[in-house]
C-alpha cells in the first residue's frame, strides 16, 4: 500500500447557495474521510467549515453524507473506496446548512426538550433508586446513542417532508421515549395521565414512522432502533389505544385494585 491521490467533491456554500467543488487530495494508509477533509482544510481550502471533535466515533460531531449515505466522517475508512472512485462529501441534507459541511441541528435540541424527563416514583429520593439489571438492560442499549443525528437525517419522514418536522420527533427521540417507557422506575403515568407510549403516539408522531429501518441502517453505534425501540413502542401504543382486549383487561385490573 502507498499514498495516492483521491478525487473528492465537497459541497461548499451556505444557506444562500453553493455547489460541489472538485479537489485532488493525498491519501495515506489507514486514513479516514475526516483525515482527508482536514488535509484539504490545511492545504487547498483553508476556509472549509467542518464540525468535528473526538475523531473516535464517540462525540457524534462529524456527521455528513459520503457518496450520498449519512455517515460519520471519522469512522469511514478510505480503504472502503476504490482508488479511482470520486468521493462526494456533503452536509446532512435534512437540516438547514450553516456553511460548507456544517448544518444547523437545533431541530433536534427542540425535539429533545419536548420529551418530559424521567419522573421518579413518589417517596423515592435521588440516590435511593434500586433496579435489577435485567430490568434496565433494554434501556441501556439506547443509552449508547452519541446523538450524531444520522438517524434523524436519514429518516424520510422529515428528510423528504419539511412540513412534518413540527409533528414528528424522529427516531432518536422516539427511542428516548421508549427508553423511559421501559424504565422500571419511571412514574410519568403514575397519576393516571397518559403513558409514555400514548404520548409517543399523540404528541411525538410515532404513527408517522413506517418502520423502514433506515435509522437502524445508519446508526454508528449499531443500536437496533427499529426492532428494539420503535416497534416495541408501537406495540405499547397499541396496548393503550387500539387493542380493546388489553384496554378492557387493564380497566378490570384497575378496578380490582
Amino acid at each position: 500500500m502507498s499514498a495516492y491521490t483521491a478525487r473528492f467533491r465537497v459541497w461548499r456554500g451556505d444557506a444562500e447557495g453553493g455547489g460541489l467543488k472538485d479537489y485532488d487530495v493525498e491519501v495515506n494508509d489507514g486514513e479516514v474521510v475526516l483525515d482527508i477533509i482536514h488535509r484539504l482544510q490545511a492545504t487547498q481550502a483553508t476556509d472549509l467549515a467542518v464540525r468535528w471533535n473526538c475523531k473516535a466515533g464517540k462525540c457524534g460531531s462529524c456527521s455528513a453524507e459520503i457518496n450520498g449515505r449519512p455517515r460519520l466522517m471519522c469512522m469511514t475508512r478510505m480503504s472502503v473506496f476504490t482508488r479511482d472512485e470520486t468521493i462526494t462529501v456533503t452536509p446532512l441534507r435534512a437540516f438547514p446548512v450553516v456553511r460548507d459541511l456544517v448544518t444547523d441541528v437545533s431541530f433536534n435540541y427542540a425535539k429533545a426538550r419536548e420529551i418530559p424527563a424521567f419522573v421518579p416514583p413518589k417517596g423515592v429520593a435521588a440516590g435511593e433508586y434500586r433496579m435489577a439489571q435485567v430490568d434496565v438492560e433494554r434501556s441501556q442499549e439506547f443509552r449508547k446513542c452519541i446523538e450524531c443525528f444520522l438517524c434523524q437525517d436519514t429518516c424520510h419522514v422529515v428528510r423528504d417532508h419539511e412540513e412534518n418536522k413540527g409533528a414528528f420527533a424522529g427516531p432518536r427521540f422516539l427511542m428516548r421515549v421508549a427508553e423511559l417507557d421501559m424504565h422500571p422506575l419511571d412514574a410519568a403515568a403514575a397519576d393516571g395521565g397518559p403513558t409514555r407510549a400514548e404520548s409517543a403516539q399523540d404528541d411525538h408522531g410515532l404513527g408517522y414512522c413506517n418502520i423502514t429501518k433506515c435509522c437502524t441502517e445508519v446508526c454508528p453505534e449499531h443500536i437496533h432502533i427499529t426492532d428494539n425501540a420503535l416497534i416495541p413502542l408501537k406495540e405499547r401504543a397499541v396496548d393503550r389505544k387500539y387493542d380493546p382486549l388489553v384496554w378492557l383487561g387493564s380497566k378490570i385490573r384497575r378496578r380490582g385494585q
Binding site: 444557506a15 437540516f95 403516539q201
Partner: peptide, 22 residues
C-alpha cells in the same frame, strides 16, 4: 398532533430554514 411541552412553537422549531431561497 404536536402536544409539545416546549416553549418553542412546534410549527417552527429552531433549525427551520430561512425564507430566502438558494
Amino acid at each position: 398532533a404536536t402536544g409539545t411541552t416546549s416553549s418553542t412553537p412546534s410549527s417552527t422549531p429552531p433549525g427551520t430554514p430561512p425564507s430566502t431561497s438558494p
